[in-house]
Design a protein around this nucleic acid. Structure first.
Length: 453
DNA sequence: AACACTGACAACCGCCTATGC
DNA sequence: CGCATAGGCGGTTGTCAGTGT
């Protein structure tokens, strides 16, 4: 893009590489020649391409030594990876790719490199830029980041996974067995994944690396509290731990930022999950989800800003934390093929802003980075699971989670819920039956946030 | 025509981990 | 085991082009 722009614009010496700084005395080659910064010229590109052809990728710091290119190794690597690689796909994202990115982000958060791995020919930088632009646009319009269908699909996927995991409760972790016999989670080849399927292939793939790791660990396994993914490269664990889960029984995004949860709960989609659950992920009639009358979730933003009463402040925070939007617009609704509904009133917006978790829920050093919807959904799943353990009331949360609104949308407090979904879990339990086993009275077992449901 | 705004893009920065010595 | 270096990743910033007023 700016390859042919002249170097004169910016050439302050490379600080991109700490190594270069340290070794080269602040961006100087051998302390003498300043490393170039700024846009790459086509000549530089040619040099770099030539170098890679001859020597292959890697050893980027040697590029400068052997090619006379006055760029730090990092800069070379970036240039090659983002622009010069022959397998790069140029041009705008296709709608399929865009959908894929949204769903991937819902699953894994800001893991651009991982997302890029799912999109052949695309770079993490591209995806990141696309996402940031999208976020900005949606937030400016106060639109939700994740389309409802993404939320639902994700939740369904998680739910299925969790049901499978339930079978493993108490099992000892055996990587091979888990891999091949028990869960039948394939070694998913993510490349060229099919898009726009009911449950995207990468969902399984993601499970293989994150959620499935939990499954593999098995509930109550020795890994349960270790926050360690046996299948993950150790090097990645610390970073991944930002979105790590405490094992199936404790399915919760360890680093799940409040903001993401906010989105899940504030955003009608979150409500979908909370309230309608699996009634039908593909239910075309999502209009009920758009009711501006979702129950009030009081005092929830205390974590975010220590001031649950300020409705606008969280929005500002959200800009950073990908906190989402508060309502649908007609256009957005339409674009997602769901019925439009009136925008919530400002009061409703205020209400929706508030929701989320108590401090103890996110107390263990959550990251400010987005972890995606997956974490949030997992969290919800955990809550549901916990409630299952705790109680056996035949109504309430279960109905809430998997029910259908029967009450007046204008009076959420009196809304009645009724189980009507009967999706079969892999374990043979229907979701309704599974969750009807655990039916704490609203607020009784959800870590003190039952009133949120 | 001038200006502001926005989106797209490229590149840099800082932090982190892996690896080799 | 500690240190230095290389490389990867995510966040941020800067630039440019297009568009609307």
């Amino acid at each position: 893009m700016m390859d042919d722009s002249e170097d004169s614009k910016r050439s302050k010496g490379c600080h991109g590489s700490p190594a270069a700084d340290e070794v080269n005395d602040g961006g100087m080659v051998g302390g003498m020649i300043p490393l170039k910064k700024g846009p790459w010229t086509s000549a530089e590109d040619a040099i770099l391409i030539d170098y890679v052809k001859k020597h292959g990728e890697g050893n980027w710091n040697a590029v400068q030594k052997h090619s006379g290119l006055f760029r730090c190794g990092k800069s070379c690597r970036l240039r090659w990876a983002n622009h010069l690689r022959p397998d790069l796909k140029k041009g705008a994202f296709t709608p399929e790719e865009e959908n894929c990115i949204v769903e991937l982000h819902a699953m894994m958060g800001n893991k651009w490199a991982r997302m890029a791995a799912e999109l052949p020919g695309r770079t993490d930088n591209e995806i990141k830029n696309y996402w940031n632009t999208r976020i900005k646009r949606l937030q400016r319009a106060s639109l939700p980041i994740y389309p409802p269908d993404v939320c639902l699909r994700l939740y369904k996927t998680i739910q299925d996974g969790q049901n499978m995991g339930t079978l493993q409760t108490g099992d000892t972790y055996d990587p091979e067995l888990m891999q091949t016999d028990h869960f039948k989670i394939p070694e998913v080849e993510f490349k060229n994944l099919e898009l726009s399927r009911g449950v995207p292939s990468y969902s399984l793939g993601l499970f293989d690396t994150s959620a499935s790791s939990m499954l593999k660990q098995g509930v109550g396994s020795s890994y349960g509290n270790g926050l360690v993914f046996p299948t993950m490269h150790p090097a990645k664990r610390p970073r991944e731990s930002q979105t790590i889960f405490t094992g199936l029984d404790g399915i919760v995004g360890r680093g799940l930022p409040v903001s993401v949860f906010d989105q899940l709960t504030d955003y009608p989609c979150g409500k979908i999950i909370e309230h309608s659950g699996l009634s039908s992920p593909y239910d075309p009639d999502l209009s009920t989800y758009d009711q501006p009358s979702w129950d009030v979730l009081p005092g929830s933003h205390a974590i975010l800003n220590d001031n649950s009463s300020s409705a606008s402040a969280p929005i500002c925070v959200a800009m950073k934390l990908e906190l989402p939007s508060l309502q649908y617009s007609e256009s957005q609704q339409d674009s997602w093929g769901t019925p439009a509904s009136p925008l919530p009133s400002l009061e409703s917006v205020d209400t929706l802003i508030q929701s989320p978790p108590t401090k103890e829920m996110w107390s263990d050093g959550q990251s400010s980075r987005s972890s995606g919807l997956l974490d949030a959904v997992l969290y919800e799943s955990r809550n549901l699971k916990n409630s299952k353990k705790c109680s056996g009331h035949p109504t309430s949360d279960v109905s809430v989670a998997f029910g259908e609104i029967h009450g007046s949308p204008l009076n959420p407090s009196e809304t009645e819920w009724e189980v009507h979904a009967d999706l079969k879990s892999p374990s043979g339990h229907s979701t309704s039956s599974l969750y009807s086993e655990c039916t704490p009275v609203s607020g009784s077992s959800l870590d003190g946030r039952g009133e949120n449901i």
